[in-house]
Design a protein around this nucleic acid. Structure first.
Lengths: 334, 334
DNA sequence: ATGAAAGCGCTAACAG
DNA sequence: CTGTTAGCGCTTTCAT
């Protein structure tokens, strides 16, 4: 196993200078067609590739590395988002660096990695927001995009769901089919996006003249949490005809929890989730929900990142991603 | 926004040489406690971090970058695996580079990225195997680990499910509850792991004296494919009492497809999936399946990678990951 | 244990 | 358009 060929090797074989080689592989540099051809041939023969690590050492050229800080990858909506983000970054010429982070992890590791490899930017998408990460990024001037997270600092861009719209749409969907007595089900611990959506929902419920009959809680905003919330709801002996759940996973668990007790949706109550994960469309659930387009989310992140990188000193924008109702069986009039 | 501090800045502030700074941050270098203290203080004050890009330029130190080539991230089992792999790599001191690849993409992009950043290794986990990637890696001496893929070249390590065991266990689960007339349902197009599992299953069905009554097909090995297979099955008018599906997602779709036609599992037939994705345990499905431990898979990958990196010239191992049956409602005697 | 000096592979500013 | 020269930030001999 020999070490990879360098520009010098190529230059020697092609009978030109190192610079000629460098220029051949630099966009918009001036090389004659003849030299270029000679270089390309030699490069091809040797299997030469530009070493981007060395290239980015020249402070002019930025590193092209972008950190993708992610938690809760088991959440399929998150997985889809990460996949799209990675593809988008690659398409834009960046190299995504996957930095998993979960509650309890030291933020130091993540920060060190970003700084050690002087990334040209970072996208942070995790529910439980380690504010320190954002703080450090700001401190070291790393362009930062936060997804569905509370604002941190002046110069970070944020991309988030239009939670106000989503909350109100959820209420309207229920109102449209004649619901009057409403339940909200979610996780007990407050979460930024979900909390904002809940507040908008509750507000709109009142505005539309429906009655908020109660709340039901689960531990986490996942399937298990939904089951807990169903049990919580049933134990309260409330009478409701419509409900909104924190997100789709939670809603599916809620349905399963009700089902386990012999009830069914929409017979017992109409139900609206949020996100439109793949599973929501499965016949076993057929859940009405609010679609948040992962493509749009991704696009917004990439645009915001590009903007941050281009003008790191400016104040970061907040981009809101719209949602559209997807009507399915869980809100079908019976 | 000033450029990040360099070792020279730290050296100047601490009143020592650059080398002293370098040594302070190099494991196992000889520095006096006093110098180290001075350096650390200065570094801290300046917010200095070693630039790993520059470090790895010194060919002695390898780059620590590892490519994670992934397709089908929407598949939640894959997402979990990727998450674990990324965490494992980080824990082992590597930096995972996320390279999404999907059918139809040019392999050149992926290969270029790996080579441009001279990664110290790569883990490829995607169903549809771009053999070229493996070939190029071999050509350039990049240590490679393939997950659930056909062998490519002598020097690549492979980690895969013990498909023979899995196929036989699936058959045994059905046999144990008294099934006699068996159906296999999967995607039409052959896939490496799934095909091997199917063959073992069919073989064991025969060995155990059960009868293979028929096959049902769907386009892809996902939920939609399962629904198609259910329709395919129903249209054939077969009578069966037990079935095995290509994987869990497919099995859930199969259940939904049957359900849509008014049938239910296990009343119509007992059903065994494979993987044990989270959704398999949801009450709406309660699917008996074969658990493939993502932790074990991850561990094996990391070990294999370490081995590859340490001894790139040796012949790659094949590590088989065992499976364990998880019995749930879909194979409950009725 | 420490500093000086060389060099990793590359690009860019400079002459020609 | 081309070659020469000087660095990017770091580690590593080599003397001391």
């Amino acid at each position: 196993m020999k070490r990879p060929p360098t520009a010098a090797d190529v230059a020697a074989l092609a009978g030109v200078s190192r610079s000629a080689v460098s220029r051949t592989f630099t966009d918009g540099a001036s090389v004659s067609g003849e030299t270029r051809a000679k270089v390309m041939e030699a490069a091809d023969k040797l299997g030469y590739r530009v070493n981007h690590l060395a290239r980015s050492l020249n402070s002019a050229q930025p590193s092209k590395l972008v950190a993708l800080v992610v938690s809760d990858m088991d959440h399929s909506f998150r997985a889809v988002t990460v996949d799209l983000l990675a593809r988008g970054l690659v398409a834009d010429g960046y190299r995504p660096f996957l930095l998993p982070w979960s509650e309890g992890d030291s933020t130091k590791t993540v920060i060190d990695m970003m700084l050690n490899y002087n990334v040209s930017g970072a996208i942070v998408t995790s529910d439980t927001p380690p504010a320190e990460i954002a703080d450090e990024c700001a401190r070291y001037g790393v362009p930062l995009v936060l997804v569905n997270k509370a604002p941190v600092g002046e110069r970070t861009a944020r991309v988030m769901q239009d939670t106000d719209l989503a909350g109100r749409l959820a209420a309207q969907e229920l109102h449209d089919i004649g619901c009057k007595r409403i339940l909200y089900a979610g996780q007990r611990r407050n979460s930024f996006t979900i909390g904002a959506r809940r507040d908008a929902f509750l507000d709109e419920v009142e505005t539309l003249g429906m009655e908020l009959v109660g709340m039901a809680y689960g531990t986490a905003q996942n399937h298990a949490g939904g089951i807990e919330a169903a049990e919580d709801f049933l134990s309260q002996g409330l009478e409701v005809d419509g409900a909104h759940c924190a997100n789709d996973f939670f809603a599916l668990g809620f349905i399963d929890g009700l089902r386990r007790a012999g009830h069914s949706v929409p017979d017992l109550m109409a139900l609206v989730g949020c996100d439109d994960i793949n599973e929501a469309a499965w016949p076993a659930y057929d859940l009405t929900t609010l679609r948040q387009d992962p493509q749009a989310l991704t696009r917004a992140c990439l645009d915001a990142l590009a903007e941050r990188i281009a003008a790191p000193e400016t104040t970061g924008r907040l981009i809101r991603i719209g949602v559209t109702p997807v009507r399915r069986g869980s809100t079908r009039r019976t």
